[in-house]
Nucleic acid binder design. Structure first.
Lengths: 342, 342
DNA sequence: ATGAAAGCGCTAACAG
DNA sequence: CTGTTAGCGCTTTCAT
């Protein structure tokens, strides 16, 4: 048994006794209720201070049926996009004196739901899920738990009533449109192979842009990675084996692009002279590759903030459907240029 | 008022009524206590299941005076090192059915202590602080809160009883020793300017390695960044203004090295042909710079795991001082080579 | 093996 | 303005 054995820390009753009042009065004084005489309140607060009193949120939660707590479930916090989003959530939560539970689900839908259940057992007031694999399937569950669930970048196909998403279709249409405006025609797309909604959307945007420009898309221009550099490298190798290689490649995300970049360099080709390359996300890293990567910025921090704000608004009693698509921002760096040879 | 208004979810009492037993029996059955007849227990569990019963952790915590919750405070979760550590903490926590509170303190000691206080009010069972600015000053507070606090990479000079640290002195001695073994003599150090303990230690390691090799350290070889790329760039510019430029530069961390790399390229110099460059941390990113960065790997995930394990051990009643220094691992990539010119 | 009862720390309705 | 009382959901003696 060590020194951290829990035992009677000072409670509202102790300070009630010391102040010669009832514990209810102490409770009121500490909430700065105006139903307590200023003098008494002051005295109580002083005693509380001197006793080093810290309210017990557990007791309070049990009484109020509110925990001022929100649960955030993510695929993995080690993903820099996710970390930024969580950072946004945390900022608004703390400003409103909410605490944040964090849990990883490793992109596994079962784990994701288990985590949601465990959050529910802790009676979080609300839940935010980033890159959910469950999506709209939450609708009945949220209802049953009486706990609002907000999704950020829902990866499940069905639309869900509270969703904050990056507008992947627009963003990728813009990116590919930009490549086309540079004069590119043989533009390839490297997606991931899991069929996430964001991948499907980005592919749609790609096709739309091509179509709008009247360029026929060739199936050999579509390759699949895994959302990580390794997958990007492999996919890019396939593209580099094509007879005329593509003059530009748009990647599902920056990680894929970074892997693709390596494959290009390994082949002795140069970016952007021999081939233009674009990513999506605008990771911190994108600014530090060689050459720095052109990409579409996802407002990660803002997405987290908005999700938290909507959640708190709902908790405040304001009902509102909220399906928000945030625009990406085209970031032009040095990995894109007009095609040189035809 | 919306659909998420809290109201009577099923409690132990509801299922007691339905099962025709007392709520105490239900409590026992659900804890698989052996003081309840198997038959009754089974029946109770079935009813609970069918009622969709989920235990209320708040009620339980109030009764047991334990929350099975740990608080993690970090400078910012957007820092990839921190994110990895938190990932490690979360993994062992969840395996033991603990939940994790996360809060950012933005490297501000006051905020850091406020967060610790708010965790205490929520009666977390234990607290882990990464890169604390408060350090040993926690000793009395932890005592008073009766809540163990574990530090990861304590940045406060005083030694604290529960600390998991990267062995910065050794790691940097090894890194600089490696540069020396390549034949470098004019080796510069770029630190940060805030006097964090890790910076001081890495600088110590640098000096030790130089001393051991009998190389006199020159004060103009010491520059200061801010731990981020911008600072690294500025510091590197100063070093590049020296008459014979250093043949190698060891940086406080990878971020600094990345900034330095940019300054070197901007000057038209090449790494490692004209100058060798090393970082510290082994960020994911270090493998994707051009050239890939030689560095010292910090076992980030493991550090988080160990911190959580020690915390849980303490919570289990085993008292143990724990000041653990984990070794870094020298990672040689392409940014280092023997010096060419003298 | 089970029930009755007390209590964890707090809030809130009610009575004065 | 203040005290009394009940109760939030659960665990845990103490009886039986």
């Amino acid at each position: 048994m060590n020194t951290f054995t829990k035992s009677g820390s000072v409670s509202i009753k102790d300070i009630a006794k010391a102040a010669g009042v009832s514990h209810a009065t102490v409770s009121r004084a500490l909430q700065s209720s105006n139903l307590v005489k200023p003098g008494t309140a002051k005295r109580i607060r002083e005693i509380a201070e001197q006793f080093g009193y810290r309210p017990n949120a557990v007791g309070r939660s049990l009484a109020t049926n509110r925990t001022r707590t929100i649960g955030v479930v993510v695929t993995t916090i080690a993903d820099p996009i996710v970390a930024e989003m969580v950072s946004g959530v945390e900022a608004v939560a703390r400003a409103r004196e909410y605490s944040v539970f964090l849990a990883n689900c490793h992109a596994d839908p079962e784990t994701e739901m288990q985590v949601v259940q465990s959050f529910h057992e802790r009676r979080v007031d609300g839940i935010i899920v980033a890159a959910s694999r469950v999506g709209a399937l939450y609708e009945p569950l949220a209802e049953q738990m009486r706990t609002p669930i907000i999704l950020i970048n829902n990866q499940h196909p069905n639309s869900y009533k509270y969703s904050i998403n990056i507008d992947s279709i627009c963003g990728s249409r813009e990116a590919v449109g930009y490549l086309i405006s540079l004069g590119h025609k043989r533009i390839a797309y490297i997606g991931d192979r899991f069929g996430h909604q964001t991948d499907l959307d980005r592919f749609s945007g790609y096709r739309q842009a091509m179509e709008m420009a009247g360029i026929a898309t060739r199936s050999e221009w579509i390759a699949h990675g895994d959302g990580k550099p390794e997958g990007g490298t492999l996919a890019m190798k396939k593209l580099l084996a094509l007879k005329p290689i593509p003059s530009a490649v748009f990647c599902y995300n920056d990680m894929t692009a970074i892997g693709a970049l390596r494959a290009i360099h390994d082949q002795g080709l140069r970016v952007p002279q021999d081939i233009s390359l674009m990513g999506f996300d605008d990771l911190f890293l994108a600014n530090y590759t060689e050459p720095p990567l052109s990409t579409v910025r996802q407002p990660k921090h803002q997405m987290g903030r908005i999700a938290a704000e909507i959640l708190l608004r709902i908790l405040g009693g304001q009902e509102a459907d909220a399906r928000i698509d945030l625009p990406g921002e085209l970031i032009v760096r040095a990995s894109t240029a007009p095609p040189t040879s035809l």
